[in-house]
Every structure is written in C-alpha cells, then in structure tokens.
Simulated assay, not measured.
Amino acid sequence: MNSNLESYRFEDFLLDESFQRWSLSTAEKSEREFWSEYYLTHQEQHEAMDRAKVSIQQMNRTEPEVDASHIEAAWEQVDEMTSSPVVRMRPITWMSIAASVAIMIVASYLYLRDTAPTYVSYQTGYGQVSNVTLPDGTEVTLNANSRIKVEEGWSDLDSRKVLLEKGEAFFEVTKTADKKPFHVISDEVTVTVLGTEFNVKSGKSATQVMLREGKINLSYRGVERIMKPGELANVDKANSSLTVSEVEVRQYDSWLERKLVFANTPLSEVAILIQDHYGVAVELSDELKDRRLSGEIPNKNLELLLKALKVTHDLEISHDKNIVTINQSRHKP
C-alpha cells in the first residue's frame, strides 16, 4: 500500500487498486480495516475519497442480462410495424459509455496532475513545535498540530505563497531583492507582506492574524485592511465577520517561547487550547467554564502545563490516558 496516502487526491484514489477493492467491498479483512480506519482519521480527504468511491462503483456496475430470444422477438415486431427495412445497429451498452467516460476523466485528471503546481508540506504533531526555513530565507515557526504547504519553484514565480491548512504559525518574512510579495492564505483570509513578523492561527471557529512588526495587508471576501503592529484581526467563520483590535502582543506570540500568557482568559478557552495542542479530550466542570485566568505559565509539555495550572489557579486536575479532567479544588486552607 502506498506510504504517501496523505498526498492523495481524487485521481490517486481512483487508480489505487487497494482502494478500488475497498470501494467495491471485495477487499480482504485487513484492507477493509485499514481503509475504514484511514477514512475516519483523515477528514480532510473525505471529499476526494467519496468522489472516487462513487466513480469506482458506477464504473463497475453490472447490467442485467437480457435473453437473446427476447431481443430477436422485439426486432421482429418492429419489422412488422414498419414498411421499410430496419437496420439493426449493435446496441451501445451502458458499460461501454461508462468506460469511455472513465477514460476521459482519468486522462483529464492525469493531465491536470502533471501540470498543476507541486507543493511541499511541513507538519507538526501534538505537543511539537518546529522551525522551518523557506526557500527565500523566511523563518516559520509551526505550533503544535499545524500544517503549511509551500509551492515549489519560488524563483520562477511572481509571488511567494504559503497555505496554512490548519493550526498556527509565526512568520519572519525575508525581503527579496526583486520585492516579490509574500502571501499567507488560510481559508478565505489572505495576508500580503513584503517583510515583517506576524502570527496566523487557523481554528475551527475563527482565523486570527496578529502583527508584531512591520505592515501587512489583510484581505477577506473583498474587504481589505492595512494592519499596524500590535493589532489582531479576527475572522469569525460562523457569521463571516472581520474585526480588528489592539492587543497585548505577548499574549499571542508567547507560544514561541513555549509559554502561555492569559489575560482574563475563560477557562473554557484554555481547555480548547489544550485539546488542540496536545490531542487530548478535556472535561471541564460546569462551575469552571466561566472562570477566568490571568498570568504566565510554562508549556513545554502537557504534564508541566497541567501542574502549573493546578498550582497557580487552585484546581484539581487529573490526566488518565487521553482524558484530562479539571474540577474546582476542594482543598480547605
């Protein structure tokens, strides 16, 4: 089985023999279990997998058998009803049409695959922070559970583009001699710069851009905004709104030093941060959801973070396998 499945697109799944067997329910148990598990854990590829599965099933649909004597009887009835001879054409079967269409689809996708841009991906796991140097010298720091894609061949392109597919990344953009613009794209948000330092975070409910140094142009659904250092742009995905406000920069870039800075932050937001960063489920008692935290705590690993939260904010915290439970401390001084 191909080890590079995460880069698969529609046409790759379509041509993969193991995936074909799974789609047609003819795979062995090990293959069935593999693809079922892969489908559950790779939601970002659901659209491509679903389309490929439907196409494979349609191309392998069998036609009902028709008795030859019935066909001959039908032609005789037509001959009797017409005054001129009827030329009997060989019927074009559904499968022959489907096969022709399939060939055209695959050929088109293979052409697009060969001519489409090629990307290099950089990704971090849960609890991992990594530094990446891009071809132009730009430094990117990826927060935990984050992924960016960079188009190859920047020297031959009119601009430099980075796709933030998930998570959070901090950019220290290098100015080039030819002043090529630098674009960071996350969902429908595009950040354009020449040389500056900024942070982009792509979450489930919002995309945030924080400018630490320099100047950037932010574009969202036809609305453009020039941002100044110390400003945070927040794009709410639910109501498609863009707001810009002044913030304390330290609160948004402290993760670069493996620290977290809270400023009247709801504990419910801290729980989401822990889930996204470390890939664990956080169970928070109702009485604590609106409690707010302030201060700075280390974030080098999950256990250190939980210990610091427990001590500095008087909480009862337990960690069992992949579940973190946070309750109000019952300690009485």
Rank of each mutant, 00 (worst) to 15 (best):
N2C: 05
N2M: 03
E11R: 08
E11M: 03
Q20V: 08
S30G: 08
E31P: 10
W35A: 10
W35Y: 09
W35C: 07
L40R: 11
E44Q: 13
E47P: 00
E47F: 03
M49K: 05
D50F: 04
I56M: 00
T62N: 02
E63F: 00
E63D: 02
W75C: 04
M81C: 06
S83D: 10
P85H: 10
V86M: 15
P91V: 15
I92L: 14
W94C: 02
I97S: 07
I97W: 06
V101H: 07
I103H: 01
S108T: 12
T115R: 03
P117M: 02
T118Y: 10
Y119D: 04
V120A: 09
G127R: 11
S130G: 06
N131I: 13
V132E: 11
L134Y: 11
D136M: 07
G137D: 07
V140F: 03
T141R: 11
T141G: 04
L142K: 14
N145E: 06
S146H: 09
V150N: 08
E151Y: 03
D156V: 09
L157D: 13
R160Q: 13
K166E: 05
K166R: 15
G167A: 06
A169W: 00
A177G: 01
A177Q: 13
K179F: 07
E188H: 09
T190P: 12
T192P: 02
L194T: 11
E197T: 13
S202I: 01
T207R: 12
Q208Y: 06
G214K: 10
G214L: 05
L218F: 04
S219R: 08
Y220K: 03
R221T: 06
R221F: 08
G222N: 01
G222S: 06
E224T: 14
I226S: 11
K228D: 04
L232T: 01
V235T: 08
A238E: 14
S240N: 07
T243K: 07
T243H: 06
V244E: 15
S245T: 15
E246R: 13
V247H: 10
E248M: 06
R250L: 14
Q251I: 02
E257T: 08
E257A: 15
K259S: 11
S268K: 06
V270D: 10
A271G: 01
L273R: 11
L273I: 01
Q275N: 03
G279T: 11
V280S: 04
V282I: 04
E283H: 05
S285Y: 03
E287W: 00
E287D: 15
L293A: 01
G295T: 05
I297N: 08
P298G: 15
H313M: 07
D314Y: 12
E316W: 12
E316R: 08
I317V: 04
H319N: 14
K321W: 02
V324W: 00
V324H: 05
R330W: 05
K332A: 13
